[in-house]
């Protein structure tokens, strides 16, 4: 079954001005249920914009987005939250810093649901939250009543991930969610990501800067450049590929678009 269907998606920022950017250029993409898609691409190639358009934070100029067959192109973000859960690159964006972990989890538990003036945050739901936190393996189950702001970036990102799957979403969007973390914590969050996606059989899209992650995770990888999808690699292909093959692909782009060797160097530094 098709989960997300995207056709002819175009987004032009600052139209008509000097810094006009074509962030998405006629993008077409079909994602099936239980696909785990990784997205790589140069800086500014439109990866985040693609995710934002799917989530409804940005309304595209042209094109159509369907989720589970329902057209949502112009629906605002909060109306799509019943299908979509997100983890942002910035660990501060995904949680409310002055609220406790329990309160943040409750907000996620109610994702896409109506909020009544009821006292749902009772002992029963707290013990459920505690069990869920224990699965993060970060000793957070004792800190249910601590405010979010007292957690480290990695811990906050892990909690955000847990919040995203607390109510199993139809689609999980991850935008470089480990980029701001140190390598050890990043590895831990990636391990959790893999675990959650497998446990809940999620459909997920993950933008990453790490070639390793792109190769190891998911069953499909797309490569973006200048607002276009320039490559779409299936899981069979992925098994045969190495990081060098990826880099050679960038080399090909260089040949087509005359990238300077300096830029290639920057790309290599970024992805190795």
């Amino acid at each position: 079954m098709t989960m997300i269907e995207i056709a002819g998606l175009t987004k032009l920022f600052n139209a008509g001005s000097l810094d006009e950017v074509l962030a998405l250029d006629d993008v077409c993409l079909e994602i099936r249920e239980h696909d785990f898609l990784t997205v790589i691409g140069t800086n500014g190639s439109g990866k985040s914009t693609l995710l934002n358009v799917i989530a409804g934070n940005i309304i595209p100029d042209k094109g159509i987005i369907r989720i589970k067959g329902k057209e949502v192109t112009r629906h605002p973000d909060f109306k799509r939250a019943k299908y979509i859960a997100r983890v942002f690159q910035n660990p501060f964006q995904g949680t409310a810093p002055d609220m406790t972990i329990a309160e943040n989890l409750l907000m996620a538990w109610l994702r896409g649901k109506h909020r009544w003036p009821l006292l749902s945050l009772n002992r029963k739901i707290k013990s459920f939250f505690r069990d869920q936190l224990a699965s993060l393996d970060m000793d957070l189950e004792k800190r249910l009543e601590n405010v979010m702001g007292t957690l480290s970036g990695g811990q906050r990102q892990a909690v955000t991930l847990l919040m995203a799957v607390l109510q199993t979403p139809d689609v999980l969007l991850l935008d470089e969610h480990t980029a701001a973390l140190d390598p050890k914590t990043a590895a831990q969050v990636i391990r959790l990501t893999r675990k959650f996606v497998e446990e809940h059989h999620l459909t997920a899209i993950m933008v990453t800067h790490s070639m390793n992650q792109a190769l190891e995770l998911g069953n499909r990888t797309i490569m973006m450049h200048h607002g276009r999808i320039i490559d779409d690699i299936s899981s069979e292909e992925k098994k045969k590929l190495t990081i060098d093959d990826f880099l050679n692909k960038f080399e090909d782009i260089r040949k087509q678009e005359k990238l300077t060797p300096e830029l290639i160097g920057r790309l290599k530094a970024l992805y190795c």
């Binding site: 909060f78 939250a81 109610l110 909020r115 945050l121």
Partner: peptide
């Protein structure tokens, strides 16, 4: 009231609007 689901949502909205929008709140 500020401790109910509704009240908590109000407080979260002020605290982090990006997060609460991602949880389906206008």
């Amino acid at each position: 009231f500020l401790r109910t689901d509704f009240g908590l949502t109000m407080r979260s909205t002020g605290n982090n609007p990006v997060m609460i929008a991602a949880q389906g709140v206008s």
